[in-house]
Each structure stands twice: as structure tokens, then as C-alpha cells.
């Protein structure tokens, strides 16, 4: 289809839509009152629940931190705590950046730039979180083992099934990280193209 053809078809569509007025005053005013749940608000809700869980676990670890009685268990506990406290805050902050975009004042070009940058930032943090989860996996096991069953993971006798479990989790994490990375690259590459195009003017 060439542009002229598209234009004619568009005009036909506009005429057709003009004939089918569906909205009533009541429907319109209802739309202004009951805002649909924006998907970013849904994400915020899920992330907030996740953050609360992380904070509760962090409080639990802090409460029993004294029980981590060797330097390496303390180190594992410290790393786990840092992850549980910092990551949710970073993600929630990045979502907040997207939500606070002033789409009522900005023009189309500026909105694209601001939105793509904010979205890239959020994706970068989530991607970072996926990689960190590998580290977290190895620091959480000793901490949980010590705090929940008072066993030092590093010196205790380990059953074969435990190695199998670790292997399965590692494979899962690998595929999860690979999927995450590909999705991230796909979205950010297209965002980068559009941002470069806008930065270069014409």
C-alpha cells in the first residue's frame, strides 16, 4: 500500500467511526473517575509485596545475626542483607521514575526520550538483579543453614541430593538469566535506536 492509498483508507475508516458514536456522557465520566489499573501500578504492587518480604527476611537475619559465629558466615549474612535491603529500593525507585513522567506537559519527542531512558534504567536494574541472584543463592544457603538448623554449611557433611538440588537451581538460574538478558537486549536495542535517531536530529 502506498501512502495515498493508506490515506484514503484512513479517511474511510474515520467516516465509518464517525457514524458509530458509542460513548455516552455517563460512560465518559465513569472513565474519568475509575482509572484502570495501569500496568506499572500492578508492577509496583508486586514489587512492593516482594520488597516487604525481602525486608522481613532481612529483619529476621538481623535479629539472629549474632548466631552467624564465623567470619565467613558473617560475610555471607552481610551480602545477603545488602541484597535484600538495596535491590527492592532500587527497583521501586526506577518504577517511580517511569510513573512520574509528566506526559501532560512534555511533547511527543521528549516523552519518547524520557520514557525510553527510564525504562532502560529499570531493565538494567532488573538485569543486574538476575545476575546478583547467582551470588545470593550461594550466600543464602549457609546463612539459612546456620540460622534455621544451626549447621555450618561449609564444614557439615553434605548429602548427594543437596548437590543435585544446587545443580538444578544453577541450571534454572542460567536459563533464567539467559532469557532475561535476551529480552533486555531486544528491548534496549530498539530503545537505543530510537534515542540515537532522536539525538541525531534528522
Amino acid at each position: 500500500m502506498e501512502l495515498e492509498e493508506l490515506k484514503n483508507l484512513w479517511t474511510e475508516l474515520s467516516d465509518e467511526l464517525e457514524k458509530q458514536k458509542n460513548l455516552t456522557d455517563k460512560i465518559i465520566m465513569n472513565m474519568t473517575q475509575q482509572r484502570y489499573t495501569n500496568k506499572f501500578e500492578k508492577i509496583t504492587r508486586y514489587e512492593s509485596v516482594g520488597a516487604v518480604i525481602c525486608f522481613l527476611v532481612a529483619i529476621g537475619i538481623l535479629w539472629k545475626f549474632e548466631e552467624l559465629d564465623t567470619w565467613y558466615l558473617k560475610l555471607c549474612g552481610g551480602i545477603t542483607l545488602a541484597f535484600l535491603l538495596i535491590m527492592p529500593v532500587l527497583v521501586l525507585r526506577a518504577i517511580h521514575q517511569i510513573k512520574k513522567l509528566n506526559i501532560l506537559e512534555l511533547n511527543y519527542r521528549d516523552t519518547i526520550v524520557a520514557f525510553e531512558k527510564a525504562r532502560n534504567h529499570l531493565l538494567m536494574i532488573q538485569q543486574f538483579g538476575i545476575y546478583l541472584s547467582f551470588v545470593l543463592f550461594f550466600t543464602t544457603i549457609p546463612v539459612a543453614s546456620k540460622l534455621l538448623s544451626n549447621k555450618d554449611f561449609f564444614i557439615m557433611e553434605k548429602e548427594f541430593s543437596l548437590y543435585v538440588l544446587i545443580g538444578v537451581v544453577m541450571v534454572f538460574l542460567y536459563f533464567f538469566a539467559r532469557w532475561g538478558y535476551r529480552s533486555y537486549k531486544k528491548i534496549t536495542n530498539s530503545a537505543e535506536n530510537i534515542l540515537n535517531e532522536l539525538d541525531n536530529g534528522v
Binding site: E16, L17, Q20, K39, I103, T111
Partner: peptide, 25 residues
């Protein structure tokens, strides 16, 4: 248009068109 940009789309993209069954109801 600004609202449309910042509207998070779901990924259910269907090939070859808008994916919306009927454009004119």
C-alpha cells in the same frame, strides 16, 4: 500520544496486523 507511549504493552503480539479482531465494530 504521550499516554500511548508510556502505556506498557503486553507482549501478546499477533503476526501480520494489529491483533485486534475487529477494527470497526
Amino acid at each position: 500520544l504521550n499516554t500511548a507511549i508510556s502505556h506498557l504493552r503486553s507482549r501478546k503480539k499477533q503476526p501480520g496486523g494489529s491483533g485486534i479482531d475487529k477494527i470497526v465494530q
